[in-house]
Computed example of a mutant assay.
Amino acid sequence: MEMQTILIVDDEKEIRDLVDIYLKGEGYKTIKACDGEEALEIIENENVDLVILDVMMPRLNGIDTCLKIRENRDMPIIMLSAKTEDIDKILGLNMGADDYLTKPFNPLELVARVRSQLRRFYRFSSKVLKEEINENIIQIDDLTINLDTHEIILSDNMVKLTPTEFDILALLAKNRGKVFSIENIYESVWNQELMTSDNTVMVHIRKIREKLEENPRKPRFIKTVWGVGYKIEK
């Protein structure tokens, strides 16, 4: 397994060095920062698995740093503070911290909490990954089609399709690369034969494109195969 990286953020050099020694002794890679601003720069440029974050620091304190991290990161955060009041612990946890340890602390207890948080985090991440592999979730570039919940997500935004529009999109998505004629689509979705000169399918395709495409005239998803029908490419 690749060595996990712990970011130690504290304005007291003695504490940074002490925690560094114990974590390295347990086989972790460490990076040290003396305040929140330096920590945020490191997180932007390094792969950090867990952050140990002091509350009282100059320039950018631990609470504000925690909030900044949580804007786009979900790694575990353990906060350190000399404050022992319950309200301070609650504040830290409410701001996005996963655990809280008051100073002075036993370094061995901190190491145990680091190990526990990493184990919990990666066990949860593994579970999420397995759920994402669900065969009933179809991913096409930035488009996600959930066949179980009938949800459509495009670039992290929910798209509302009518049940019929969803069924057409799902039919094409489940059979990527296969061209469906208008007759094929109609008979598969409506479960009846297509009446001559019925343009129902074309109207629904146009509506789907209007909801999914930046430029419906140049669609990324549902392609027209002229003289044959429609498909979603592989």
Rank of each mutant, 00 (worst) to 15 (best):
M1P: 02
L7M: 05
I8Y: 00
V19M: 01
D20R: 03
E26W: 05
G27K: 05
D35I: 01
E37Q: 14
E38P: 03
E38T: 02
E38Q: 11
A39W: 01
I42E: 10
E44H: 11
E44F: 06
N45V: 12
E46C: 07
N47S: 13
V55N: 02
V55H: 01
M57D: 03
P58G: 07
G62E: 01
G62H: 03
K68H: 14
R70N: 08
S81I: 00
A82Q: 04
K83F: 01
K83I: 08
I87G: 14
L93V: 01
N94R: 08
A97I: 00
Y100I: 02
Y100M: 15
V111Q: 01
R115L: 07
S125T: 06
S126V: 15
E131M: 11
E132Q: 11
N134E: 07
I137R: 11
L143Q: 07
T144A: 15
L147C: 12
K160M: 13
L161N: 13
T162R: 10
T164A: 14
E165A: 08
I168Y: 05
I168E: 09
I168A: 09
L169H: 09
K174S: 13
R176Q: 15
V179A: 08
F180N: 01
S181M: 06
I182L: 14
E183Y: 11
I185V: 09
W190F: 10
W190N: 12
L194D: 10
V201Y: 08
L212A: 05
N215W: 13
K218Q: 14
F221G: 06
F221R: 04
V225M: 10
V225C: 03
G227A: 08
I232L: 08
